[in-house]
């Protein structure tokens, strides 16, 4: 027998042109730069980011001084402090470049952990609605009702101030978001025809949940990831700022802001402002990327 109508909508083969999304490109560029810094950052600066230098509270050189300093450096002299040094004598530029490794590693691990737990629990809560999963949802409601910063601070304070504990604390506060997002999508997907078809074919419920529902319910959580990583960086810095985060002299933006915070009033603005700008740009990049991904997903 002759084969039949395959592409009834021939028009759909030629997809309508997608507008180039400037924000998407900008967000992606920022994220890529931060990711590269996380790998090679500690070797960019001329100074070891964890060791002090004899120059204390040196302001960033003005543009007119810079050529002279550069030539001294090239002639074998000491390297310039491009962004100055703080009150302990740490080179701010070297620490600024090295910090993404600390911040991004914490943020990525925390996000990864909460993503995995959130996806699985959200899948169970959405697919098998029973007493246990409803209880899970109420617990996650309660967790979400605390400000994330307070929850994270309390958790780190209770568990002890270590990188692993910060990761766990962040993962804990972000998991409920993923549970809720995934559950909502699962509730959508589980009423679709191919789920019923899978059941009619004789699949077990758990198989249907894992093989059919989960892969089709990933998008909202993955898109949220970008935003969450941004906020996790902010939260890591915040914890360090209040002294509940990583220990000095680890290069970390929040710590850097904290160490300079007291001196701003004395006019020594550079040790806080540069890491502050770095955090803002990074969080902005992740948030914008997340937004753009969401728009693309909807389109």
């Amino acid at each position: 027998m002759a084969t039949v109508d395959v592409d009834t909508e021939t028009a759909s083969a030629a997809r309508p042109r997608r507008r180039v999304d400037a924000l998407f490109v900008l967000g992606l560029a920022i994220v890529v730069v931060v990711a590269i810094l996380a790998v090679i950052g500690p070797w960019i600066g001329a100074y070891d980011p964890t060791l002090t230098t004899p120059d204390v509270s040196a302001p960033p050189p003005s543009l007119t001084e810079l050529p002279g300093l550069m030539s001294t450096w090239l002639a074998g002299g000491p390297a310039p402090h491009f962004l100055g040094t703080d009150t302990s004598g740490f080179d701010i530029f070297s620490r600024l470049m090295a910090a993404p490794r600390t911040d991004l590693v914490i943020a990525l691990s925390a996000n990864g952990l909460s993503l995995v737990f959130g996806l699985l629990l959200g899948l169970l809560a959405g697919y098998f609605r029973n007493f246990v999963t409803e209880l899970l949802m109420r617990v996650s409601d309660v967790l979400q009702s605390f400000p994330v910063f307070i929850s994270a601070m309390v958790l780190v304070a209770l568990a002890g101030r270590s990188t692993a504990n910060i990761v766990i604390a962040l993962a804990f506060v972000y998991t409920p978001i993923y549970i809720r997002l995934t559950r909502a999508e699962v509730l959508n997907q589980k009423n679709r025809g191919f789920i019923e078809a899978a059941r009619a074919l004789g699949n077990r419920e758990l198989t249907i949940a894992l093989r059919h529902v989960l892969p089709n319910s990933l998008a909202p959580a993955l898109i949220q990831s970008s935003v969450t990583i941004g906020f996790a960086i902010l939260l890591t810095a915040g914890l360090s700022f209040v002294g509940a985060g990583v220990r000095p002299p680890t290069p970390e933006w929040g710590l850097m802001i904290a160490s300079g915070a007291n001196e701003i009033i004395l006019g020594e603005w550079w040790s806080s402002v540069f890491p502050g700008i770095a955090i803002s740009i990074t969080v902005f990049g992740f948030a914008v990327l997340g937004d753009a991904l969401e728009r693309r997903n909807e389109a």
């Binding site: 025809g193 191919f194 019923e196 078809a197 009619a200 074919l201 004789g202 059919h212 089709n216």
Partner: peptide
């Protein structure tokens, strides 16, 4: 019942919705 399903089948109304898109 799952074994029996080989012999008892269904074709659903909406063809766009009844196949796993991935």
């Amino acid at each position: 019942m799952r074994r029996q399903r080989a012999k008892l089948q269904i074709v659903l109304q909406d063809p766009f919705d009844s196949l796993n898109p991935r």
